[in-house]
Design a protein around this nucleic acid. Structure first.
Lengths: 223, 223
DNA sequence: ATTGACAAAATAGTATACGATTTGCAAGAA
DNA sequence: TTCTTGCAAATCGTATACTATTTTGTCAAT
């Protein structure tokens, strides 16, 4: 079954006209520049990218599968929004995926991993800019999971992070402050360094559950 | 943020020409009728469905995002295959998602759930047809997770099951026999009925890990 | 003023058409 | 024979063009 010479092996698929359009719209949705319910006019996108509607539609169909846009027959595509319930459910899925990734990663971590992650946490504590917090937070989590060696799992985690970021970028950091997350991050890392898988997973789970509670409160207050 | 009147709320999107094509090709890939590396000729598919290439390409782009087909520039789409490593990694993701779903589901289970699931297991034991085993197995798992109430999570589990089924439909049941899985299924259900979340999750995890070992052995033998 | 009907404009969806790339095959050279 | 080389056919990718549906704007009747 394994077949190294087959085209799809390493294959960064050569680019088609829909690829840059796909990437552009996706980035704009995930960054919040295209808020939920924004209509995505095909002619307009086509014109702005200097192509016809066909690659545009292909890009939009791809985003549809990723649950980032919604098609309505003869009305076109709009940026999808997630309900409060769905956002909280995504956090439950985060717990599943990230705990598993960490569980698989801990046995593979080496000294260099610990050094780099520890250094990241130090930077984290010193940054004052709120916009940096979010980026560093994501990076911390990625560094924890990366040694798990399961690319598909890492991709799913990344996908979730981006979707949630679209809604939570500001809140979590601003509303929460840094103390709790920082303390929890350190707990997780310490358990990893001790090689205690169960403790690390428990700490991570508690961390995400705490985040979930904050998010739930925030959304109740009417986001 | 919640908005019941918004178009995308309940929204079964009205059908476009690419929908039936998408569904057809997806079903044929997942059932194994279109084996990995099969080229998917756009003109041919278009002709057989009585449409032009455009809806066909949209369908294929959707399948590409789902990792079911691969595009190569100017060569078109082929059915994607997963390597042995990737299949085993999918099983690791199964552990993550299904254990989480069960954990969330157990507290929501009611007497009727137990009755139906128990009945299913009895049927299971009496069926002789191998083809039925696989279907009943999937159904058993779905019934366990359904009370978790997280549609997105259930959809992801279903997606995984189908992708794995494409490769493992026969093997797992034929190579393994029924004794082990049956015993493990009963263990899981008993723990659920006792309301013991931890025991249920532990039993499920052991069940999937055992499956993973069998799959690994099967694949090593050269599937 | 408000509503209803209808025409006009905008937009979506898809077939057709065509240039570009790849593939298959045959003929000739090593 | 085996390896090039060079068409010809097949196939892909996308622009153009046309139809169908939805939205918008206008005007008359209430």
């Amino acid at each position: 079954m394994a077949n190294v010479t087959h085209p799809q092996a390493g294959a960064k698929r050569a680019t088609s006209a829909s690829d840059p359009i796909y990437a552009d719209i996706k980035a704009r949705i995930l960054s919040g520049r295209l808020p939920p319910a924004t209509p995505l006019r095909q002619d307009e996108i086509a014109r702005s990218h200097g192509v016809s509607k066909i690659p545009v539609r292909e890009a939009l169909r791809r985003l549809e599968v990723e649950n980032l846009v919604v098609f309505e027959k003869n009305k076109g595509a709009t940026v999808r929004f997630y309900t409060e319930t769905e956002i909280l459910q995504l956090l439950d899925i985060r717990i599943a995926l990230e705990c598993r990734a960490l569980e698989l990663a801990v046995p593979n971590m080496i000294a260099a991993d610990f050094r780099e992650t520890q250094a990241l946490l130090r930077d984290y504590a010193q940054k004052v800019e709120v916009s940096e917090w979010s980026r560093l937070n994501v990076q911390f989590h990625q560094m924890l999971y990366e040694p798990c060696g399961n690319r598909q799992l890492l991709a799913m985690i990344d996908d979730l992070q981006q979707k949630l970021g679209q809604y939570l970028r500001l809140l979590v950091t601003e509303a929460t402050g840094l103390e709790r997350p920082m303390r929890e991050h350190q707990d997780i890392l310490s358990a990893c360094m001790a090689g205690d898988v169960d403790a690390a997973v428990a700490a991570l789970r508690a961390h995400i559950e705490a985040t979930k509670k904050e998010v739930a409160a925030f959304l109740r207050r009417g986001a």
